[in-house]
Amino acid sequence: MQRVNMIMAESPGLITICLLGYLLSAECTVFLDHENANKILNRPKRYNSGKLEEFVQGNLERECMEEKCSFEEAREVFENTERTTEFWKQYVDGDQCESNPCLNGGSCKDDINSYECWCPFGFEGKNCELDVTCNIKNGRCEQFCKNSADNKVVCSCTEGYRLAENQKSCEPAVPFPCGRVSVSQTSKLTRAETVFPDVDYVNSTEAETILDNITQSTQSFNDFTRVVGGEDAKPGQFPWQVVLNGKVDAFCGGSIVNEKWIVTAAHCVETGVKITVVAGEHNIEETEHTEQKRNVIRIIPHHNYNAAINKYNHDIALLELDEPLVLNSYVTPICIADKEYTNIFLKFGSGYVSGWGRVFHKGRSALVLQYLRVPLVDRATCLRSTKFTIYNNMFCAGFHEGGRDSCQGDSGGPHVTEVEGTSFLTGIISWGEECAMKGKYGIYTKVSRYVNWIKEKTKLT
């Protein structure tokens, strides 16, 4: 034993070699072989497995989906700052455009905790909710729209109204504003409101030439003092309507412009014939205590009207009353817009006519005020429907199939267009061939041609 100890002390290297040989010859039971080890760690190889990531292109799944990435790591994937920024906006807080917040056709661009709407022409605001041009839906104005110097929408209202708090709607500024039905039992019968379409306001006024200088022999019209197929109006439903009495009662109609003036057809009036105007009328054979009678003290036909040349060209006249009318729910003026808007309103496509005229061709006159909704007829169809001249200051309205029309005794009465609950004068009943005849239409004086003249002559002093 002493000898062994001496050998170990003198030859430590020998001992180490012996131990190493023993270990190498022993069977290893701690580690699995290569094949079995792979069965336990069965993990798919990654895209760049075996390579240094710093030297390969980034992978979106590896960089940002398996674990949260930084902007720089995302930049490695896209290799483009702009594309990385677009991805980053949604990656950080989701897609803010998912709810489609942009209105009126706006395009949404996502941002971090926010979004941006790219608005089409005519709109602005956070969600493109603000109209900035009158060309689109009248700028959301209830009545009139004008573009300011910086191309912003400025709404306005006709006389007797003021802008509401929203700067879009119009509200009454006087007790009985024009064009409004205020009798409670008839307010439910107000005709369907007309909503502004998209309009090209630059070209809204037709490029028409008034044929002022045409000389033409007097034409022989049949029954051209021209509501057939209409309905009984309720008291106060058309408070701007008046009836004219002269040699015979209810020979023509008219509309209240203001307390002192009536507008009617020029062919209705004769110099030297006494005319009485009755406002607030409903049943011409009954006294309903809503009527107001006034005498006409002055007749002003349009300066281009000449019955000797043509009885229905420039067929418009103004009547001055001896005493002002007292405005109330049964006696209310009709609204008159400017030339541009009167023309736009007419193009809405349908209007209402009213009167006490004959209820059928050569038949009896109506006792109760009649009204009828009539569609506008395109000019080409209008011209083809008659052998008589249709001037540019006239328009056609009615039904091709016949059966409904204005008729004798309705002449001078109103053709009105309702705009968001307020009625505007767009025409004056003038003439036609018979009444409600198939293929024939009622012919009306186009008020847009005469609004400046009306307003100039009827100013209240």
Rank of each mutant, 00 (worst) to 15 (best):
111 D>Q: 12
186 T>F: 08
277 V>Y: 00
129 E>Y: 05
263 V>R: 01
112 I>A: 15
389 T>K: 09
93 D>K: 15
162 R>G: 03
184 S>T: 07
56 V>L: 04
316 I>Q: 01
387 K>W: 07
164 A>T: 07
94 G>L: 10
432 G>Q: 03
128 C>L: 02
25 S>T: 08
165 E>I: 08
110 D>L: 15
280 G>T: 01
452 N>R: 10
155 C>P: 00
213 N>W: 06
42 N>A: 08
385 S>I: 11
365 S>K: 03
98 E>S: 12
146 K>S: 05
105 G>N: 05
134 C>V: 02
441 Y>N: 03
460 L>S: 06
285 E>S: 13
111 D>W: 06
207 A>Y: 09
236 G>R: 07
400 H>M: 11
198 D>F: 07
73 E>R: 08
217 S>Q: 13
159 E>N: 05
159 E>M: 05
101 P>W: 05
373 R>I: 07
368 V>G: 13
382 C>W: 02
425 L>S: 02
89 K>C: 11
456 E>A: 07
102 C>N: 01
68 K>F: 09
408 Q>A: 06
322 D>C: 02
138 N>E: 11
360 F>N: 15
228 V>N: 04
40 I>D: 08
247 K>Q: 11
260 K>E: 02
267 H>Y: 02
378 D>S: 05
55 F>R: 15
377 V>F: 03
284 I>N: 09
239 P>Q: 01
202 V>Y: 08
50 G>K: 14
98 E>Q: 11
453 W>N: 00
113 N>A: 05
3 R>G: 07
51 K>P: 14
408 Q>K: 07
61 E>T: 15
113 N>F: 03
410 D>I: 13
312 Y>P: 03
393 N>Y: 10
408 Q>N: 05
104 N>P: 03
188 K>A: 06
170 C>R: 00
254 G>C: 00
374 V>K: 03
272 G>M: 11
370 Q>S: 13
326 V>L: 12
308 A>I: 04
200 D>E: 10
8 M>L: 10
156 S>G: 04
56 V>E: 11
326 V>M: 15
33 D>A: 12
445 T>E: 02
452 N>V: 07
259 E>G: 03
196 F>V: 07
331 V>F: 01
433 E>C: 12
349 G>H: 14
319 L>I: 10
253 G>P: 04
183 V>C: 05
219 Q>R: 07
79 E>C: 10
85 T>I: 06
115 Y>F: 11
169 S>N: 08
185 Q>M: 05
385 S>M: 05
331 V>M: 00
307 A>P: 11
136 I>Q: 13
330 Y>R: 14
3 R>I: 12
198 D>P: 06
193 E>C: 13
59 N>K: 08
307 A>W: 08
6 M>G: 11
379 R>V: 14
420 E>P: 01
151 N>E: 09
403 G>I: 15
33 D>P: 03
221 F>Y: 06
102 C>F: 01
243 V>N: 04
173 A>Y: 09
211 L>K: 09
268 C>K: 01
430 S>V: 14
378 D>N: 12
302 H>F: 06
328 N>P: 00
18 C>L: 11
124 E>Y: 11
278 V>E: 03
58 G>L: 09
38 N>Y: 10
130 L>G: 09
67 E>I: 04
376 L>Q: 10
290 T>L: 06
152 K>F: 09
323 E>G: 04
326 V>S: 14
126 K>W: 08
304 N>Y: 10
158 T>A: 08
165 E>S: 05
247 K>I: 10
361 H>F: 07
189 L>S: 08
95 D>Q: 14
200 D>A: 10
356 W>Y: 05
349 G>T: 07
171 E>A: 08
179 G>I: 01
424 F>Y: 14
70 S>V: 08
319 L>H: 01
5 N>F: 14
100 N>V: 10
408 Q>M: 14
210 I>V: 10
13 G>V: 10
456 E>W: 03
261 W>T: 01
300 I>W: 05
367 L>A: 11
114 S>M: 03
79 E>H: 14
238 F>P: 03
123 F>H: 09
183 V>S: 11
148 S>E: 09
457 K>E: 13
298 R>S: 10
444 Y>F: 11
126 K>D: 13
11 S>H: 09
85 T>P: 15
366 A>Q: 14
220 S>F: 08
282 H>S: 11
117 C>P: 02
443 I>T: 11
250 A>H: 08
314 H>R: 02
91 Y>E: 14
215 T>I: 07
376 L>N: 07
445 T>N: 06
396 C>P: 02
388 F>G: 03
193 E>S: 13
289 H>F: 12
177 P>E: 01
69 C>M: 08
437 M>Y: 13
103 L>D: 13
438 K>F: 11
189 L>D: 05
423 S>C: 05
454 I>F: 01
222 N>C: 13
16 T>A: 12
290 T>H: 11
439 G>C: 13
409 G>A: 14
283 N>T: 12
179 G>L: 01
389 T>L: 13
430 S>P: 04
250 A>D: 05
201 Y>I: 06
319 L>D: 01
399 F>Q: 15
446 K>E: 15
395 F>E: 02
146 K>T: 11
109 K>I: 07
34 H>D: 06
449 R>D: 15
102 C>V: 01
125 G>V: 02
312 Y>G: 06
157 C>M: 00
17 I>G: 00
226 R>L: 06
368 V>A: 13
242 V>H: 00
196 F>C: 15
442 G>E: 06
215 T>A: 06
248 V>S: 10
219 Q>W: 11
230 G>M: 05
144 F>N: 00
341 Y>V: 13
10 E>M: 10
415 H>Y: 03
391 Y>H: 13
115 Y>C: 04
297 I>N: 05
96 Q>H: 15
170 C>D: 01
166 N>I: 01
27 E>H: 08
211 L>R: 04
313 N>V: 06
435 C>D: 05
277 V>K: 00
373 R>P: 14
186 T>C: 07
439 G>R: 13
271 T>S: 10
243 V>K: 09
290 T>P: 06
214 I>Q: 10
343 N>A: 10
287 T>P: 07
69 C>H: 04
214 I>A: 11
314 H>N: 11
276 T>F: 04
382 C>F: 03
30 V>R: 12
47 Y>C: 05
364 R>K: 05
348 F>Q: 11
100 N>W: 07
81 T>V: 05
51 K>T: 11
268 C>M: 00
158 T>V: 06
356 W>K: 14
52 L>M: 15
458 T>K: 02
148 S>H: 10
262 I>S: 00
67 E>F: 03
388 F>N: 13
237 Q>K: 04
114 S>G: 14
7 I>G: 12
446 K>S: 14
333 P>C: 01
309 I>V: 11
29 T>F: 06
429 I>K: 09
104 N>M: 08
316 I>F: 01
109 K>F: 08
297 I>F: 04
272 G>D: 12
293 K>T: 11
176 F>P: 00
23 L>S: 00
152 K>N: 14
56 V>T: 14
391 Y>W: 10
11 S>W: 05
236 G>F: 05
136 I>C: 06
155 C>V: 00
2 Q>Y: 13
133 T>F: 12
336 I>W: 00
185 Q>S: 10
155 C>D: 00
25 S>C: 07
4 V>C: 08
129 E>W: 03
334 I>Y: 01
369 L>G: 13
348 F>V: 14
357 G>S: 14
375 P>E: 06
174 V>A: 08
440 K>I: 03
349 G>A: 11
237 Q>L: 10
28 C>L: 00
366 A>P: 14
134 C>D: 02
136 I>V: 12
381 T>L: 11
27 E>I: 01
76 E>T: 15
17 I>Y: 11
97 C>P: 02
275 I>Y: 04
270 E>L: 11
321 L>I: 08
144 F>V: 01
300 I>L: 05
329 S>Q: 13
395 F>R: 01
220 S>R: 03
311 K>Y: 06
234 K>D: 12
240 W>Y: 02
264 T>D: 01
440 K>E: 14
237 Q>Y: 12
314 H>Q: 02
66 E>F: 04
113 N>W: 04
192 A>Q: 07
151 N>R: 06
